[in-house]
Structures are given as structure tokens and as C-alpha cells.
Nucleic acid binder design. Structure first.
Ligand SMILES: [Mn+2]
Ligand SMILES: [Mn+2]
Ligand SMILES: [Zn+2]
Ligand SMILES: [Zn+2]
Lengths: 139, 139
DNA sequence: ATTAAGAATGCAACTTTGTTGCAAAAGTAT
DNA sequence: ATACTTTTGCAACAAAGTTGCATTCTTAAT
């Protein structure tokens, strides 16, 4: 096949450009969530920093990637599942895990975020859960 | 009384300085979590930016404040409860809420984070939950 | 109250991160 | 192949964060 990246772009009605394909490939090859910086390290020699910013923004809006909150000012991004890509909006209701040992952040796709009861008057739109600890590779 | 801020500093074995008192006062008066920038806006004329960075770092380490993850590269800080201050490490297992309308982030101190089952091999140390939506003031 | 030791602050210089406008280049549809 | 639209790179900038060091402030002991 070898055109998965291109397919994703076409399905999202995005024009197929070298930088977008490259950045998608980086995500497809990654086993953990990536910060802007990680991507820049991998391809700043080929593509401009600004292009990376704009590409990530575009991917976010199209439901190709989702972002993961952090307390270190390093928002990380990971590929979405099919549902987000096809519907064009996000359904990423899984837990994220940040390993204190290796520093990797991963999507726990099989772990759903449990329900939570908000006080009267609050309306929930999105929910995010990030767990810190030791991952299964580092334990 | 009027010495709550000073008491917190003393209980944490921190020397009592004007900037620390001021920053604590800002937190004590706030009804929502504050980013570095918010604090800077309120007192950059009196205290150096670097001092604010270092003070927040110190307060974090002493369990005086905790930080709240975000996807907008604006980590926010809020006062901890007694338990963190007295023990010197964090027990902030409550849910945080970010209002899409007013932009405020608040601690829902009464809403505990529900338990979550991690896959085999993962060890949990900390857990963070942030909910987005409309707060009770904006609804 | 003085003083000495240690801690915190301010400043300068710097690095990193993120934003914007615009011209050139590349992609898409005809 | 052409015209139209979108994306990219560049430059210039603004904002955010870091570090070393001299000065000032706190604290605790005299
Ligand atoms: Mn994820
Ligand atoms: Mn909180
Ligand atoms: Zn790990
Ligand atoms: Zn609100």
C-alpha cells in the first residue's frame, strides 16, 4: 500500500503536500505522542518551523490528530482513530499516560474515561484525563 | 488576622518576602486558577518576571499551589488545600473545569476524580482530569 | 540592636517558542 | 497547459522562559 498518509489527507479534503505527508508519516511511525519540538527535530532541516505549526493546526481542525494537555508547556499530539477522521470532529475519550521514567506519553485507547458528576449548573463538552506513573516498558 | 499568607510561608519553612506575600495574596483573592501571565499582569510593575517564575516554582515544590494541565500552553496554578501544605506533597485529586465562555479554570474541590483501571504493567502515581464546557456563572 | 551567613531578588543577556504578512512555489481542477 | 487556489518559506517580530551574577533582604545568633 504505502499510501496511508495520502489517503488520510484526501479523506480530509486536504491537498497532498510533501510536508503534510512527511509529518503524517512521523506520526504513523511514532509509538508515543509528539510535541511540536519532536517533529521539528525530525524535519526542521526539510521544512520550515512555521509550516509545522500550521500543519499541526490543520490536522487538529480536521480531526487527524488530537492534543494532550500537560503541565510542562509541551502540548503533545497523537493520531486520532478512524471515527475522528471520518466525522471530522473529535471522539478521543480515552485516557492518556505519561511515564515519569521514559518521558513518553501514550494513548491508552482501550481505557475509557470514567463518567464524572459535575455540580449543578456545569455543562460538560470535553473531558481529558492524564495519568502519570511508570509505563509497562519501564517498570 | 490578615496574616494568612505569612502563615503559609512560615509553615512551609520559606522566608517571608514581599513578593511571596504579594503572590500568595493574589492567589488567596482569586476565584479561579491563574497562569504565570495573570500574575505578571497584576504585579510586574512591582516584581521582576524572573522572581515570579521562581516563586511559582517554589510554591509548587512546597505544596502551596498545584498546576493544572492545558492544551493552550498556559499552565495554570491554584492554591492547594491544607493537606498539601502540611504534608509538603500533593493530594489534589479533584476535577478541574475550564469554561469555554468566560475562560476561567476552577478547582471543583468537591468532585473527586473517579477510579480508572490501567492496563497490566502500568503504575499510577498522579492523575489529572480537566473538563471543558460551560460553567455555572455563564450558563 | 548588630552582625554574619545564607537566601531571594533584579538585571542583563540570551535561548526558545509562537505569530503574522507577504511573495514565491506547489497543488488542483478544467 | 492554464488559471485559480492553497500552501510554503522567509523575514521580522513578539512573547515566554532560562541562567549567571552582583546586590539586597531575611533570619538567626550574638
Ligand atoms: Mn490519545
Ligand atoms: Mn485544583
Ligand atoms: Zn516509560
Ligand atoms: Zn464561565
Amino acid at each position: 500500500m504505502k499510501k496511508q498518509g495520502e489517503d488520510i489527507l484526501k479523506n480530509s479534503a486536504l491537498s497532498v503536500t510533501a510536508s503534510r505527508k512527511r509529518i503524517l508519516d512521523i506520526f504513523l511511525a511514532a509509538d508515543n505522542a509528539l510535541a511540536h519540538q519532536d517533529i521539528e527535530t525530525k524535519c526542521a532541516d526539510q521544512y520550515d518551523r512555521v509550516t509545522i505549526y500550521r500543519t499541526l493546526q490543520t490536522f487538529l481542525e480536521k480531526g487527524i490528530i488530537h492534543n494532550i494537555p500537560s503541565t510542562d508547556n509541551m502540548v503533545r499530539y497523537a493520531l486520532c482513530n478512524e471515527a475522528c477522521i471520518t466525522t471530522g470532529h473529535h471522539h478521543d475519550n480515552h485516557v492518556h499516560f505519561r511515564c515519569d521514567a521514559c518521558g513518553k506519553t501514550v494513548c491508552l485507547d482501550d481505557v475509557n474515561i470514567p463518567a464524572v458528576n459535575l455540580p449543578r449548573g456545569y455543562t460538560m463538552k470535553e473531558i481529558n484525563m492524564v495519568v502519570n506513573g511508570i509505563c509497562k516498558s519501564c517498570k
